[in-house]
Nucleic acid binder design. Structure first.
Length: 432
RNA sequence: GGCCCCAUCAUCUAAUGGUUAGGAUUCAUGGUUUUCAUCCAUGCCAUAGGAGUUCAAAUCUCCUUGGGGUCACCA
């Protein structure tokens, strides 16, 4: 069983989506289920409706999953696990106040050493625990030995007990912390492979330590994906427009192109342009680069063009706001000079807007429009051209430019012989 | 600062220890196109630095430098 575990505290960004994509691909290749686990244990930060939005994005990108679980519904199990750990003396009550801990941290910082829990409550005598009315958290005792695991992309990683530390597993309000809830649920959901971002690397030994303490024996495999950096080489923040899926979509990038890009970077695929379905065939987790990749919007633009070319005329037509095959075909002519659907829309829109009749070629435009309105429909462009020449007496530049303006609403552009068959059915509408 | 990870063109990457260090994107130039764009061709641009191992190092080892991640009663 695989999992994608977003928290409903913010919008989907490309890092999340990439993790979701990889989980989906691996679940297909392994023929295992993929579940969506909404990590909503921090009620303060949860945003109403975000879980739904996340699922909408997954659907839009054709990421299939077998079920959705809200982590908050498992809290009673998490507490039971914590009680078991306390029974086994692997976890203990910690009465340190927030202020006390803050002071410890401040002191560590002044001494320029990493803050670690000082173990103040670890070996409290029983009477001091029972008689203690102060609020308390529950901590897991740090492991006795170092923890190692072999990451599918990073290789073997080892962490010392001191770096794992005696972490809080239950807060004062007795709700589980992230690492604890996560470790427990990976057990409860029978997870076999965890694919997540590199920012979780240091959480992994903690979660392994929790499962070890619970005597869970199944080995869970891990793959930590290098994070995506912005152009400056920093972790992409929510402030970077390009990191927002919503923004990319609104800019006119196709989901299929975004998927393509996110699977392509930091990877060595056999081809550069591909669909998610095609990637299922050859995707290989072991080929993922260990080093972070920088987000390159130019490459995404290139892929977007390629994917626009792959759409059939009807689909493309819908994307630019029409429903006719001809408009789709017309849009295709412009793809090479466009990066996004928005660019394309801007190319098609003028066709159905009023022509300039006051400019240099305004007179010619008026004459040709009038002729079109009183003429019969003409199939062939050359016949149409002949007809206009014969009926209007226009010639040379004074013929070609107005004709181009009437047909395309622009002084330059693609060859009229190519455009004509696609718009001939709209001519009366355009000329009126 | 502690811990962990990483290092080939501007970007994504290729190269069983032996290549002229290859491709794609971007950029520039030229050609085609009665127009713009396309298209085609060409060009620019990289093994972070220093030691070592070896007949031979982008590739193996070590050091330095640089970059990134992470250090919550957030996830």
């Amino acid at each position: 069983m695989l999992r994608f575990a977003p928290s409903p505290t913010g919008d989907m960004h490309i890092g999340n989506l990439r993790v979701a994509l990889f989980n989906f691909i691996m679940s297909k290749q392994l023929n295992e289920e993929l579940i969506i686990r909404i990590e909503d244990t921090d009620k303060e930060r949860n945003i109403e409706g975000k879980d739904k939005e996340i699922l909408d994005v997954l659907n839009l990108f054709n990421i299939e999953y077998s079920q959705v679980i809200h982590q908050s519904s498992h809290v009673k199990f998490h507490r039971n696990f914590a009680i078991a750990l306390m029974h086994d003396k692997k976890a203990f009550n910690c009465f340190c106040s927030t202020e006390q801990l803050e002071m410890d941290k401040k002191e560590a910082k002044e001494k320029k050493i990493a803050y670690r829990y000082l173990g103040r409550c670890e070996n409290l005598p029983a009477d001091q625990v029972i008689d203690n009315m102060a609020p308390f958290t529950v901590r897991l005792k740090k492991p006795l030995k170092s923890v190692s695991f072999t990451d599918k992309v990073k290789g073997k990683l080892t962490f010392e007990p001191n770096d794992i530390d005696s972490i809080i597993i239950l807060r004062q309000d007795k709700n589980p912390t992230y690492n604890f809830a996560c470790a427990c649920d990976d057990i409860l959901n029978d997870i076999s492979l965890v694919i997540r971002g590199e920012d979780h690397v240091s959480n992994t030994p903690k979660q392994i330590a929790i499962r070890d303490a619970l005597k869970y024996e199944k080995k869970i495999e891990y793959a930590h994906l290098p994070i995506i950096l912005d152009t400056n080489g920093q972790k992409m923040s929510k402030r970077d427009n390009a990191s927002s899926i919503k923004w990319l979509l609104s800019e006119g990038f196709l989901p299929e192109a975004i998927s393509n890009y996110l699977i392509l970077i930091g990877n060595k695929p056999p081809v550069e342009v591909f669909t998610l379905k095609e990637a299922l065939e050859w995707f290989d987790l072991s080929k993922i680069s260990k080093s972070p990749a920088k987000f390159d919007i130019d490459k995404l633009r290139f892929l977007n063009r390629e994917h626009m070319k792959r759409l059939d005329n009807k689909e493309l037509s819908r994307y630019v706001g029409f429903a006719d095959d001809e408009i789709g075909a017309l849009a295709k002519i412009y793809i090479d000079e466009c990066n996004t659907l928005n660019d394309l829309r801007e190319k098609i829109k003028p066709y159905f807007e009023p022509r300039d009749e006051d400019g240099e070629f305004g007179e010619g435009v008026k004459i040709i429009k009038k002729l079109i309105l009183k003429s019969d429909h003409i199939q062939d462009f050359n016949d149409f051209k002949e007809h206009v020449i014969n009926e209007t007496g226009l010639e040379g530049k004074n013929f070609l430019k107005p004709l181009r303006i009437v047909l395309t609403n622009s002084q330059d552009g693609p060859e009229l012989a190519i455009v004509y068959p696609l718009i001939k059915n709209f001519l009366k509408e355009i000329a009126s």
